[in-house]
């Protein structure tokens, strides 16, 4: 394998990891506030289809991305209403959301299969940075969404760990009763985080249908929503580790073909299994070492009811 093939593979890992990163950041935020949303796959699909439809209708992919975020957030709002206001079971509601999202995206996109967008997203090389040998082409010669996604990861980290907002979010997820006692509206925080999470999932979906493979295909996320959920655990609920994890998982996806072309014989079936295997391994190691679900917000998955305090 020559150096070009290697940098090509790394650049491909970044591109393949971007939809995962966007969706995982959203899920991470929601989980930090105490809401687990297993509807990521459904929200990504709805984002992918609404983004594609609006890009076709308006001829501008930025409207598409906006529509995708709205689409994803609408679905997330259903989840928020069921789990926060009605205090329903988060796992059940999330799973329902995935099934619902899969169905409705297929329904909405029926007439749009086999079309192409008139406004493909182009790569913009960042001046100076993209000239760095090797690293430049891996990180700084991509479409805008790639840059936005790694900026968002940093912003999410800063917000979560360096601001009062972040403290409120983490408090809502760790100890909602205490958060409530100091005057934080747990419901508001959780609503906000869940809905922003939906926006990010929608954006991740639209990345697939508008940038990666500009077209709409039923079920085109093909399980990436679930990888994003696994990724949050893999990253131990840290946005910066999520960046590393996304590119690692994206790298596995890119490698399936890279290795085949290089003539290195590793079963493609094995490679497709790797992200899940890595997540299981990380979970096992962390639980053995720390004797707890390291990094998982304490109140994750539990509805907060002031009266039951």
């Amino acid at each position: 394998m020559d150096i070009n093939a290697v940098t090509g593979l790394l650049a491909a890992a970044v591109v393949a990891g971007t939809p995962l990163l966007l969706a995982a950041l959203g899920e991470l935020l929601a989980e930090k506030s105490g809401i687990i949303n297993l509807g990521v796959e459904g929200m990504m699909l709805v984002g992918a289809v609404t983004g594609f439809i609006f890009t076709i209708m308006t001829g501008n992919h930025w409207y598409g991305f906006l529509a995708a975020m709205i689409g994803g957030s609408l679905l997330a709002a259903i989840h928020a209403f069921i789990t926060i206001t009605l205090k329903g079971n988060q796992v059940v509601s999330g799973l329902a959301l995935t099934i619902f999202g899969t169905g409705i995206s297929g329904f909405l996109g029926k007439a749009y299969q086999g079309l192409t967008t008139a406004d493909p997203v182009h790569a913009y090389a960042i001046p100076y940075l993209s000239d760095i040998n090797g690293l430049g082409s891996v990180l700084f010669n991509h479409d805008p969404l790639v840059y936005i996604s790694f900026l968002l990861a940093i912003i999410f980290w800063l917000i979560l760990y360096r601001t009062r907002w972040g403290l409120s979010i983490r408090a809502a997820g760790e100890n909602p009763a205490a958060a409530d006692a100091v005057g934080i509206s747990v419901s508001k925080v959780r609503y906000f985080c869940t809905i922003v999470g939906g926006m990010m999932a929608g954006l991740g979906g639209a990345y697939l249908s508008l940038v990666y493979a500009p077209s709409w295909q039923e079920n085109m996320t093909a399980g990436r929503g679930w990888i994003a959920v696994a990724l949050v655990i893999f990253a131990l609920w840290n946005p910066l580790r999520a960046v590393v994890g996304s590119y690692l998982f994206g790298g596995v996806e890119a490698m399936t073909f890279g290795l085949q072309i290089a003539g290195i014989k590793v079963s493609s079936f094995f490679l497709q299994m790797l992200p899940y295997l890595l997540t299981i391994i990380v979970l096992v190691i962390v639980t053995i070492k720390m004797r707890q679900e390291a990094g998982a917000p304490n109140a994750l998955g539990f509805a907060y009811d002031r009266e039951e305090r």
Partner: peptide, 26 residues
Amino acid sequence: LKKTKKTLVLILALIFIASMVIGCGS
């Protein structure tokens, strides 16, 4: 609480039915 649980069950049931009608409706 019971009432909200009932509402929740109802809403979930509706979502499931809706997704089935749409998903398998094709």
